[in-house]
């Protein structure tokens, strides 16, 4: 597994999701650098997709907005961004999150090769079940670019064992059934699930989907190794009248969340 991921999960990690190109590619660069300055542990760069089935209305709107600008928000543009960010902060892991179709059209092999070249730290395909990863045998992961598997609270014991056994990097644990988006209820099975995962293999577990409050971070980080914030940050950026105010608001939240981890 990527040494960087290993390093980062030595402490409780705060992970931010950012849509490439929302509101513009230039803004994404500025925003990511600000996140890094504010002490974010890791960034997921989401590549926009026309039909995201795993995402809620906030992230879908963000994808539509990014695609509507007509700017290049392709896999290659994502790699270029990673290259820039790695020059800025070589020790902050940067992952790519994208719909299966985006990666499939780029070519799985080319994706992993290029990702390795730009020091991308992993790939998340939220609409690709573990069974499909197994079925698509072209997906050979270079050791430094793990494919991060997602696990949901409805995952049964047998599947969980399979998924965790084959997983590298970390496990992305979905906080509840449903799509991304802010919520107040989380599955009461999460703590047990984290324990079950750790019993199968010693691998970091980061929880995401719908986390927006300091209290959530505090509660969940007592047993998880990382907290992933997506919609909440995307919404802050969208809501504020200027990009600067949006970035300031997010960075403030980053500090507040970090304080309770």
């Amino acid at each position: 597994m990527s040494n960087l991921l290993e390093q980062v999960f030595k402490e409780k990690a705060l992970i931010a999701y950012v849509t490439l190109g929302d509101p513009s590619v230039e803004a994404t660069i500025t925003y990511c650098k600000a996140l890094i300055d504010a002490g974010i542990s890791m960034i997921e760069i989401g590549l926009p997709f026309s039909d995201p089935i795993a995402d809620g209305p906030i992230i879908q709107a963000s994808h539509q907005q990014a695609l509507a600008t007509g700017e290049d928000v392709s896999v290659n543009r994502g790699f270029a961004l990673i290259k820039q960010l790695k020059e800025y902060a070589p020790n902050v892991p940067i992952l790519i999150m994208a719909a299966t179709n985006i990666i499939m059209q780029y070519g799985y092999q080319s994706f992993f090769k290029q990702a390795n070249d730009v020091n991308c730290d992993g790939l998340i395909m939220p609409d690709c079940s573990f069974e499909m990863v197994q079925a698509i045998n072209q997906i050979q992961q270079p050791p430094n670019v793990p494919l991060i598997n997602l696990v949901s609270p409805v995952c049964d014991t047998e599947r969980l064992k399979n998924i965790v056994t084959y997983s590298k990097g970390f496990i992305y644990l979905i906080s509840s059934t449903g799509i991304t988006g802010e919520r107040n209820e989380f599955s009461n099975k999460l703590k047990q699930l984290v324990m079950d995962i750790k019993n199968i293999k010693n691998i970091p577990v980061a929880i995401g989907f719908g986390i927006s409050q300091q209290d959530h971070c505090k509660r969940l980080s007592q047993f998880a190794d990382g907290i992933i914030i997506g919609s909440h940050f995307v919404k802050l950026i969208q809501e504020k009248p200027s990009l600067k105010e949006g970035i300031d608001a997010v960075c403030n939240r980053v500090k507040q969340f970090k304080a309770v981890l």
């Binding site: 089935i53 609409d127 079940s129 573990f130 079925a135 599947r159 449903g178």
Partner: peptide
């Protein structure tokens, strides 16, 4: 078993839906 008809088909869904399918 994975739902493929030759090269087509499958279950390209988030983990949440796998148990339901």
């Amino acid at each position: 078993k994975d739902g493929f008809f030759g090269n087509y088909g499958g279950m390209f869904v988030p983990d949440t839906l796998m148990p339901a399918l």
